[in-house]
């Protein structure tokens, strides 16, 4: 096999391996449709080939290869838009929607993974072209491992303490830890909620965390995650069973109520802890002088 073919194959393999690794380690957040997986892998194959081809092209002094990469960047942006659009279309019928911020996050992650694949493939084919394909694959494994770290965002459990809370009714008002969530007019609904509802309180560990919890997109993401993992008894037209999250305005804590299919408090707490922190929710007031001064 000549060097060119070896380079291309190494690059392609490296890219696909990287994408499979990123796919597996994040399966929980995936929509789960098999066709989506095929699409993602195909796009990863294209990204890897481009990364792989760039090296021999540049070595042969075909500098137009750079403009080729720019075209690819634009393509990936289009793909991000497509992904966002298709998720947004599905949102309309979701009973507990993901929220725009979460979708934006998913679309951005999708785009960035294609770039990671391209660069992994580029690195691997560089090594394969100038030394040996085994070095290329070794480098690919290293780069894949680094990509894995880059993609790992924070989870809510790292920035907040999640504890069980109690549901009570003050007259018709559904109250959790002193925060009024909603007015439930029907007596049988109140009884059902007392019997089968679960509630939790989410306490931020510092002011940065408090800012994250304040973000509406982040709160919607928590509801979506919890509703997906525990199931919800919500149905179209029966709005009493809607999971709700509200802030305790004086402390910045969140209280959450849900009527789950699986009434397991430990699972509820774990589900909240597992919710990813959305990039768009992070503002970091503590990083500024004013924020730090205001904090004490």
């Amino acid at each position: 096999m000549d060097v060119l073919t070896q380079t291309l194959l190494t690059g392609l393999t490296a890219g696909l391996l990287c994408r499979l690794y990123l796919l597996k380690s994040d399966y929980r957040r995936y929509p789960g449709y098999p066709h989506s997986v095929v699409t993602h892998l195909s796009l990863a194959a294209i990204a890897s080939l481009i990364g792989a081809v760039a090296v021999p092209a540049l070595a042969a002094r075909e500098y137009t290869a750079i403009t080729f990469l720019a075209l690819v960047a634009q393509q990936f942006r289009e793909i991000r838009n497509l992904e966002r659009q298709s998720l947004a279309e599905l949102e309309e019928r979701e009973l507990v929607p993901r929220g725009r911020d979460y979708i934006e996050g998913i679309a951005r992650v999708f785009e960035s993974r294609n770039y990671l694949v391209m660069f992994t493939s580029l690195g691997a084919s560089l090594a394969a072209f100038y030394s040996h394909w085994s070095i290329g694959l070794a480098l690919a494994l290293l780069l894949t491992h680094i990509s894995g770290h880059l993609k790992r965002g924070q989870y809510l459990g790292e920035i907040a303490v999640v504890e069980p809370a109690e549901i009570t009714f003050r007259g018709p008002f559904l109250t959790v830890n002193g925060v009024v969530l909603m007015n439930v007019g029907l007596r049988q609904s109140r009884e059902k909620i007392l019997r089968e509802g679960l509630a939790a309180v989410i306490k931020p560990k510092n002011d940065d965390a408090r800012a994250v919890l304040h973000d509406a997109g982040q709160r919607q993401a928590i509801l979506h995650t919890v509703a997906t993992l525990l199931g919800t008894k919500l149905d179209i037209g029966e709005q009493e069973w809607t999971p709700i999250i509200r802030k305790k305005i004086d402390t910045g804590e969140l209280v959450l109520y849900i009527l789950p299919n699986e009434p397991d408090m430990e699972c509820l707490l774990e589900a909240v802890r597992m919710t990813p922190v959305l990039e768009s929710a992070v503002t970091r007031p503590l990083k500024s002088r004013v924020g730090r001064a205001a904090a004490d």
Binding site: G171, P172, V184, G185, E238, Q239, E240
Partner: peptide, 16 residues
Amino acid sequence: GLTLSRALDAMAHDLE
């Protein structure tokens, strides 16, 4: 309240 809230796909609130 139950009948109307189901028929209207809506929620009943008690004004106390």
